[in-house]
Every structure is written in structure tokens, then in C-alpha cells.
Amino acid sequence: MPDLSTNYLGLALKNPLVPSSTPLSHDVDAMLHLEDAGAAAVVMHSLFEEDVRNDELMIDRFLVHPDSFGEAAGHLPFGHDYRSRLDGYLEQIQTLKSRLSIPVVASLNGSSLNGWVELGREMQAAGADALELNAWFMPGDPKLSGEALEEHHIALLRELKTVVSIPVSMKLSPFFSSLPHFVRQIEGAGAAGVSLFNRFFQPDIDLDTLGVVDRVQLSSSADVLLTMRWIAILRGRTGLSLAATGGVHTANDALKMLLAGADVVHMASALLQRGPQALAEILDGLSRWMEVREYDSVAQMKGSMSQQNLPDPSAFARAAYLNALDSFTPPAGVRY
């Protein structure tokens, strides 16, 4: 039986499969089922900066300054037992830590520089083993430079690291002009790892109503290729833990990420579609593939096909683009 253990963010994990941030972590029973199916750790659903700020505004409006509303103050729906989103999130950390035997990673999602990352201190106190900082900022202003955006992310990370001692992983988008350089900056600012990549839900246009709509679009196995390429490029060029996320639905998907150099493989869409059995199936597939190819451990396999370890490093660079175009042939029966 191959040794599937790995190390992520300084945490010793029994295997590399980690359910990523989804609504599933609201349900403790669902988390227990994922652990039973083989999950090595869990990343909680994100606590959004906007939700915390809205709670703060409501508390200020109804509890701190009720006199400004005259008779309405007698009908306030809030009391001393009012539970904010933060209260609920911290309780969920404590509950998961008391029920699970695997590490629990809390998730912070926001973008401003107004102190919201101090919430990390409370998450650490509640028992979180690590934190994932999901700093998403939509750069729609043409006056905002790429350098300024990178500095914004680094400032968030540094602020968070002033209030927590547990490991912090930064979840990044693929839209940085020089990802390896930015990852090096993140490492210098105190991160313990990076998660590649943040998968954004894109707005759509409804042609019947002519309105903009938000739809959740789950990933497919084709989505692993972008992450796999950048994991392969980063492996050996940074000391950070590397988490691959987006499109892992099968054992083959997970194997590609590990061969490229991922320390862990995050899963979301497959779990939402197929439940905990997706984890068990992938773990079984990993073990069987490694046995057939005589790999003794994930550690032995991990990064063996990174860019630094390939005889032809150009396979993950521009040459791959040229080769793909040159090798394309039209489908049989299609005439031009």
C-alpha cells in the first residue's frame, strides 16, 4: 500500500485530498462524512468582509443608537442574544474542531485595508489550524496598475500576519502579470502557502429578460490544465506549500496535479455533485495507479514532472502552445 501522506502548511496530512471552501462546511454531519470518506483536512466556507461589515452596521443602527428611531426602538428585533455572522463562524470552527480529528482551515474573503483581517485573531483563538486568505479585488479602474494591485494583496497579508501565528495560505487568481515573482513576494511577506487558483463565478446575460444574472457554474476536468501548468512552474522555485484547486473530479486529475508538484489537491465541485464517495473513489484510484507504477509514496511522486524535473522544460512554456497548434487536425468528416 503506497504511503499517501503529505505535508501542507506545516501540517502532517494522511493524504493530499482536502475539500476546499464550499457551503458544505455549514453542515457538521457533511464534514464528518467527508472525513470518513478520507478527507485529510477541510477548508471552511469563507467569512466575507461584506457580511461582517453589514452586521457591524446593523448592530450600530439598532443596538448602539436606537434612540434615533423614536417609537421604532420599541420593536427592535435584536437583543443581547443576537448572533452575528462572525459569532456563527467562530462557533462553527469550535464545533468542527470538537467533532473532527483532521485539521480545520478557516477562510477569510475580502479586499479592503480597513482592519477586517483582524478577524483572523478570533479564528485562531477559536481553534483554526490555519487560515486561507482569499483576497479578491476586481481591478476595473484603468488608473490602477498591476504593481499597485500586488502591493494591495501584500499589505493584506502583512496585516493578517501581525495578528496570527498559525500558517496562512493565500488563494490567488491566475490574473497576475508575473505569477512566480508575485509568489516570491508573498513568501517574503510571511505566507506559508498558496492555493492556485481562485475560480470566479462570472455574471451572465439572460437574453429573455435582458438582465445580468449570477449563476454558479461548477468546474470540469478540463479546468485542471491551467493550475497544473503553474504548479509545475512554481515547484522547486518557492518554499511555499502548493495547493491545486479547480477541476479535480477524478483520480487522473489529482495525479496530474501531484506529478506537477502540488502538496495537496483541493476539491469542491466533485463533492457537490457526487458527495463524499468522490473522495473515496479518488483515493482508491491514487493508490491503485501508484501501485501499478511502483511509487512507494506521494512524496516520491510529488513534483517528478515539474518544469525543473523535465528533460525538456519548454513543455510547460511557449513551445507547448506552438506544438499544440501544429499538431491539431480537423475532425474526420469536416470539410473546409
Rank of each mutant, 00 (worst) to 15 (best):
L234W: 00
M170S: 14
L119V: 13
G140C: 04
R158Q: 13
R235D: 05
V224R: 00
R199G: 01
R237K: 15
L119H: 09
P167F: 06
P180F: 07
V168H: 03
S221T: 08
L240T: 03
E150W: 01
G236M: 06
W136D: 07
A243D: 04
E150I: 03
L196Y: 02
H153S: 11
S145N: 05
R237M: 10
G190R: 05
Q217C: 12
R229S: 13
I186H: 00
I166V: 15
A135D: 06
A189P: 01
I166R: 01
P174C: 07
S177R: 14
P167V: 09
A189W: 01
G193K: 01
L218H: 05
S220Q: 12
F197S: 01
A191R: 02
V183S: 02
W136N: 09
L131K: 03
I205G: 02
L144F: 10
G236W: 02
S219W: 00
F201G: 11
G115M: 11
L210S: 12
R229G: 10
A243R: 01
A130S: 07
M170I: 15
P180N: 07
M123P: 05
P139T: 08
R184W: 07
D223V: 09
N198S: 10
A191C: 08
A148T: 13
G188P: 04
V168M: 04
L196F: 08
K161N: 04
Q124R: 06
A130R: 04
L218M: 14
S219T: 07
A192I: 00
Q202Y: 08
V216L: 13
V212A: 12
S241H: 08
R158S: 08
R184C: 12
F182W: 05
L207P: 09
A125M: 13
S241L: 10
I186N: 02
L144V: 15
A125W: 07
F197P: 06
L240M: 02
R237T: 14
L210E: 11
